[in-house]
């Protein structure tokens, strides 16, 4: 049966404001929570978390 999920929690105003004051190149590393919340909020239909970067377990820097 299809399940309709509740809408993901939105990012907070403060998180968005702080992120805006961060250089673009460091947003992903300094605000991972905000990124994840924005992704879930704005891209609810994305099938998989696109920010998953794989295989670190795996003895790799990639």
């Amino acid at each position: 049966m299809d399940q309709t999920p509740t809408r993901p929690t939105p990012p907070s105003l403060d998180a968005l404001t702080r992120s805006l004051r961060t250089p673009l190149g460091r947003v992903a590393t300094e605000h991972p929570d905000a990124l994840a919340l924005v992704r879930l909020r704005v891209l609810p239909q994305a099938a998989t978390p696109p920010v998953t970067v794989p295989v670190a377990c795996f003895n790799s820097a990639i």
Binding site: S19, A34, L35, V38, V42, P50
Partner: peptide, 19 residues
């Protein structure tokens, strides 16, 4: 503030796209 949060969301999505 509304305008800024919209820009912040776009930047977050862009950083996601970079990943």
């Amino acid at each position: 503030l509304l305008d800024e949060t919209q820009l912040s969301i776009t930047r977050a999505l862009l950083a996601t796209w970079r990943d």
